[in-house]
Amino acid sequence: MELSISDDKTKELLTEVMIELLRTKRDLIRDIFMDALEEVGLANAIAESCKNEFVSEEEVLSLLDRAVE
Protein backbone atom coordinates (compact mmCIF):
# COMPACT_ATOMS: atom_id res chain seq x y z
CA MET A 1 0.00 0.00 0.00
CA GLU A 2 1.37 3.37 -1.02
CA LEU A 3 0.51 6.65 0.68
CA SER A 4 0.53 9.88 -1.24
CA ILE A 5 -0.52 13.45 -0.52
CA SER A 6 -0.98 16.42 -2.80
CA ASP A 7 1.49 19.27 -3.11
CA ASP A 8 -1.05 21.63 -1.54
CA LYS A 9 -1.51 19.36 1.46
CA THR A 10 2.27 18.97 1.81
CA LYS A 11 2.69 22.75 1.78
CA GLU A 12 -0.08 23.14 4.36
CA LEU A 13 1.48 20.54 6.67
CA LEU A 14 4.95 22.06 6.36
CA THR A 15 3.53 25.49 7.14
CA GLU A 16 1.86 24.13 10.27
CA VAL A 17 5.09 22.46 11.35
CA MET A 18 7.09 25.68 10.86
CA ILE A 19 4.54 27.71 12.83
CA GLU A 20 4.61 25.16 15.65
CA LEU A 21 8.42 25.22 15.69
CA LEU A 22 8.43 29.01 15.88
CA ARG A 23 6.01 28.87 18.80
CA THR A 24 7.66 26.12 20.80
CA LYS A 25 11.35 26.52 19.98
CA ARG A 26 11.66 30.30 19.87
CA ASP A 27 14.89 30.37 21.91
CA LEU A 28 16.55 27.73 19.74
CA ILE A 29 15.62 29.55 16.54
CA ARG A 30 16.84 32.87 17.97
CA ASP A 31 20.16 31.25 18.93
CA ILE A 32 20.54 29.85 15.41
CA PHE A 33 19.98 33.28 13.86
CA MET A 34 22.34 34.94 16.34
CA ASP A 35 25.07 32.40 15.51
CA ALA A 36 24.51 33.04 11.81
CA LEU A 37 24.82 36.80 12.33
CA GLU A 38 28.05 36.31 14.25
CA GLU A 39 29.42 34.20 11.39
CA VAL A 40 28.47 36.89 8.88
CA GLY A 41 30.19 39.50 11.04
CA LEU A 42 33.33 37.40 11.25
CA ALA A 43 33.29 36.76 7.50
CA ASN A 44 32.92 40.50 6.85
CA ALA A 45 35.81 41.26 9.19
CA ILE A 46 38.00 38.68 7.46
CA ALA A 47 37.06 39.99 4.02
CA GLU A 48 37.82 43.54 5.09
CA SER A 49 41.21 42.55 6.47
CA CYS A 50 42.09 40.88 3.16
CA LYS A 51 41.43 44.15 1.29
CA ASN A 52 43.32 46.39 3.68
CA GLU A 53 46.01 46.20 6.28
CA PHE A 54 45.93 43.84 9.25
CA VAL A 55 42.81 44.13 11.43
CA SER A 56 43.42 43.88 15.15
CA GLU A 57 41.58 41.45 17.36
CA GLU A 58 39.82 44.36 19.06
CA GLU A 59 38.43 45.56 15.72
CA VAL A 60 37.16 42.07 14.87
CA LEU A 61 35.46 41.72 18.25
CA SER A 62 33.96 45.19 17.87
CA LEU A 63 32.46 44.22 14.49
CA LEU A 64 31.07 41.02 16.00
CA ASP A 65 29.55 42.94 18.91
CA ARG A 66 27.84 45.36 16.50
CA ALA A 67 26.50 42.47 14.41
CA VAL A 68 24.92 40.90 17.48
CA GLU A 69 23.28 44.12 18.67
Rank of each mutant, 00 (worst) to 15 (best):
A67P: 00
E59D: 06
F54G: 04
E53N: 14
R30M: 10
E59V: 03
A43W: 02
L64G: 02
R23D: 15
E39L: 13
E59W: 03
V55D: 01
V17R: 10
M34E: 14
L3T: 11
M18V: 15
G41I: 00
K25C: 11
T15G: 11
K25A: 11
R23M: 12
E20S: 10
D35S: 12
K25Y: 07
D31Y: 06
L64V: 03
E48K: 09
S56Y: 01
L21F: 06
V40G: 01
T24V: 08
E16V: 03
K11I: 13
E39F: 09
S62N: 12
I29P: 03
N44K: 07
D35Y: 04
A45C: 02
E57R: 08
D7W: 03
M18L: 15
V40F: 05
T10M: 15
D8S: 15
E16Y: 02
I32V: 14
I32L: 13
E2M: 07
M18T: 12
V68S: 13
L61T: 10
E69N: 13
I46A: 03
L61V: 11
L3D: 08
S4N: 12
E53R: 07
E12D: 14
T15E: 15
R23E: 15
L37K: 02
A67F: 00
V40E: 06
N44V: 05
I46P: 00
I32C: 04
M1I: 11
D27W: 04
E59F: 03
M1A: 09
E57W: 03
